[in-house]
Design a protein around this nucleic acid. Structure first.
Lengths: 197, 197
DNA sequence: GACAGCTATGTCAAAGTTGACATAGCTATG
DNA sequence: CATAGCTATGTCAACTTTGACATAGCTGTC
């Protein structure tokens, strides 16, 4: 049996609630899963073909708007089983890559005034994203409630995590912005010598 | 001027506090930056060569333990300037990839009993990591305090974020584990006896 | 004295990911 | 009625990342 990449499973995930076209998946990769998993168009179409060959999905084709046929993909029984088996598997530890945290590690090499602006801009970006998530969360809640049995519960739960963890991050950015102000003041008024090691 | 990849800047970041060998960087890519940025050995050595060609780092070579020379790399003035300029630049929005959240999105396709075990295992993994970070945080704090002016402040700040955001994640996993128990009961699936928590 | 593990550098093939390009009909805006 | 944007599918070259391999001396353990 052909091994399926994580990208492949991600596509099976998007199909778990019903059939979609490749283009639908492209759009789903933005909200609300998009914040936790992304894939480009150029990855999605070839991967759908691979999943099809592996017998995990199947499709119906109709005449499409462009020069090609429009294909609606759905999970096969084998696909649903493969997905269910993968879901309960402990995730392989992935390398997280967070540019803002990396930059903070090398904070000592930055200009405090400009770095303060950096942190304030980041705080705003995350605040906007949080507001967006809050709106989506409220909408899902009002439409379906928070019943575990509802098929939308998974999407709702991902938003719960965002709502619980974004405020900590925003507060962290604001704290660093304040520290940068402090550092600027300390450096502009050279009264005390810097602390010895 | 040759463009530097994010990996290149990550290496400049590791060198911002003083000279290191490639092997030192390999180890630094674990704690404490490691949780927020990772690179493999096979990426690091070629990238160091590229940075050297670009004039952003330089090295001294001595006889090494193996068949090759041991090289100690340091930032050049140009390297320090390039780093300082990059630090204040707004980060390019990166695609976050979080397998556990992706799986949660497709929760409806999973077996609740096994999924509950999955969430409990994840909660434990994160709890252990949090304990580790707490220890590192306490050590840095006792050794250098939380003075912004101290060169270690950047490393300390990255740990602050971990300490502030991990508990939310652990609570999220526990909440989902509970929801899975609830779902199992609702579905009348006779399973394990209730575990003592 | 064998063997594992650490220091230390590097290469290589394979896989995954990005960003740009190509095609074409339909719809809404000015 | 031009043009911009959306639906919808797909390809391609370039770049990034992973995992395995190779070399060799030194140190500590059984």
């Amino acid at each position: 049996m052909a091994t399926v990449s994580t990208l492949g499973y991600a596509l099976l995930c998007t199909l778990h609630r019903g059939p979609l076209t490749g283009y639908d998946i492209v759009r789903r990769m933005r909200k609300p899963i998009g914040y936790y998993w992304t894939a480009q168009q150029s990855q999605i179409y070839p991967e759908l073909a691979r999943l099809s060959t592996a017998g995990l999905i199947e499709h119906e084709a109709e005449a499409g708007p462009g020069p090609r046929q429009r294909k609606t993909h759905r999970l096969t029984d084998a696909g649903r089983e493969a997905l269910a088996a993968w879901l309960v598997e402990p995730p392989a530890p992935r390398a997280p890559r967070d540019e803002a945290v990396l930059k903070t590690y090398a904070l000592a090499a930055a200009d405090p005034v400009r770095m303060r602006r950096f942190y304030l801009a980041e705080a705003e970006t995350y605040q906007r994203r949080l507001d967006d998530f809050r709106a989506q969360h409220a909408e899902l809640l009002s439409r379906h409630g928070d019943d575990v049995r509802h098929p939308q519960f998974g999407a709702y739960a991902t938003l719960e995590l965002a709502l619980a963890s974004f405020p900590a991050r925003i507060a962290w950015y604001r704290w660093l912005a304040e520290k940068m102000t402090e550092l600027g003041n300390l450096r502009n008024t050279p009264t005390d010598p810097p602390t010895p090691d």
